[in-house]
Design a protein around this nucleic acid. Structure first.
Lengths: 259, 259
DNA sequence: CGACCTTTTGAACGTATTCAACCGATGTGG
DNA sequence: CCACATCGGTTGAATACGTTCAAAAGGTCG
């Protein structure tokens, strides 16, 4: 399989390094996964010996400023990315220029797995705030997955989880009413924040109303109205991008109501 | 890795074989992928030597009658399935009992990749007509993927394609109008039929209006109305489940209109 | 043949969208 | 540092699209 051999002669490394801001002297320390508190979100929980090897998957760090793209639709696929800090959206654009936000990604989450089939990315990933990501060259992942079953298993699990997540979004878009969609969205965000040690009840939305709307299949005005409605009902407190959840149970109740 | 060793002592084989209707005497011939005309849809296009090994992935065949489930949400995950003949829908059900059809699968397509992350299936797969599927135990796939890079690559491609497909559905559900959704649906079906050697312009829908509606995020009455509308506009001819596409360009034009 | 399921079609309704105006926050250049 | 332009967000009123409810016809299968 030429993929790994390719890597050695691939200009990718220099490209990555040029974009990575890590001081050359402290590279290994900087790139260490074992010292990263997001470790258990990205990496398989295997034996320590394997972990040492797996750490080397992170090839480089890369900073992506707010508004910049990590990758664009059509870009050659050669790595998946773990969000180290910051916030991303992924979106697809169809032939007619319609844009659909397909997901939001925060620390410890992996993106870029599309394009693994075709060799080029199917969608784009855009930073919604200044972010830092870990670059994991896919050729290397594949090679190590062949040697370390725990990693292979983990890779498959990551891909499958993405599929399950997408099915959840299809459920949301296909059979929920507007209020239910926003309630599900807020509940989901809250749960993901709390897993990362942030408050479950108070957070800053990194995305605009329009981006939320695109993700939820609603217009930005509808999203705005729903925020106001939820506030009026005492479920949340909103001002601009700052959200405080006052009644998490109430939000989940909206979902339970069915239709 | 215990997964493969497990397989030998796993009662799965007998379970599979009990459900498979293949005559015992002709098993190897029956299970041969090289004689299957759907081969290039399921298997990697690699060298012949590897292909021989890969063929052994198909562990058994299994017939699933119309209305029966191939697997249910929550069922233990231990294999992925290739549709050999027939037609399936996959769907997820949320806590509130809402059902969402997440896809339709025809000959040569693979299903069951959800549940690979959690160990149990996230959704259910139901036969929409009497069908036959090839059972590919996942432990075996994982083992062989470690040894045959072409298969590994293929597996990843299959998973990634599923993700890309789901993103397409999210686009459809999130930013298309009802007419566009049905036009996209018919166009997609047509393209898949023609790849399998069937007519691109005339086919039988295996699913009900309600199932189409669930998949497209519409009510069954809306789907029915749209069929009638398309017929009135001379785009298609419908009677019940039989559809003939009269103006494929016109259907694609609906998509291009955007909104 | 009869029971049941699927599909079609109509009419009334409701939810989310569209169009529009306005407000507030943010950021840039004079 | 303020003025102004721009972008994001909120809110109202009218509209449109898809849904709901209902009835009836057409298929299918025991």
């Amino acid at each position: 399989m030429p993929a790994v051999a390719q890597l050695k002669t691939n200009p990718a490394r220099t490209i990555f390094m040029a974009q990575a801001d890590a001081p050359a002297g402290s590279r290994t320390a900087e790139l260490s996964c074992s010292s990263c508190n997001l470790r258990e979100l990205c990496l398989p929980g295997g034996c320590l010996e394997d972990l040492e090897r797996v750490e080397n998957i992170v090839y480089a760090r890369r900073r992506v400023k707010r508004g910049e793209t990590l990758f664009n639709a059509g870009d050659e696929f050669n790595a998946v990315y773990a969000v180290r800090s910051g916030f991303f959206k992924t979106c697809v654009v169809d032939g007619e220029g319609r844009e659909q936000v397909t997901g939001f990604f925060m620390g410890g989450e992996l993106l870029g797995m599309d394009g693994l089939g075709s060799g080029s990315h199917n969608g784009a990933a855009v930073a919604l705030e200044d972010s830092e990501i870990c670059v994991m060259p896919f050729a290397l992942i594949e090679k190590m997955a062949r040697e370390i079953p725990a990693l292979q298993r983990h890779l498959h699990a990551v891909l499958a989880r993405e599929i399950v997540r997408d099915h959840g979004v299809m459920m949301l878009l296909g059979s929920m009413r507007a209020e239910e969609r926003l309630a599900a969205f807020l509940t989901n965000l809250s749960k993901r924040f709390v897993r990362r040690g942030y408050s479950s009840s108070e957070f800053h939305l990194r995305m605009t109303r329009e981006e939320i709307g695109s993700y939820l299949g609603l217009k930005l005005e509808t999203v705005s109205r729903l925020f106001s409605l939820f506030q009026k009902e005492g479920l949340i407190e909103v001002q601009q991008k700052h959200v405080r959840i006052l009644d998490a149970g109430g939000l989940e109740q909206i979902l339970k109501q069915g239709n």
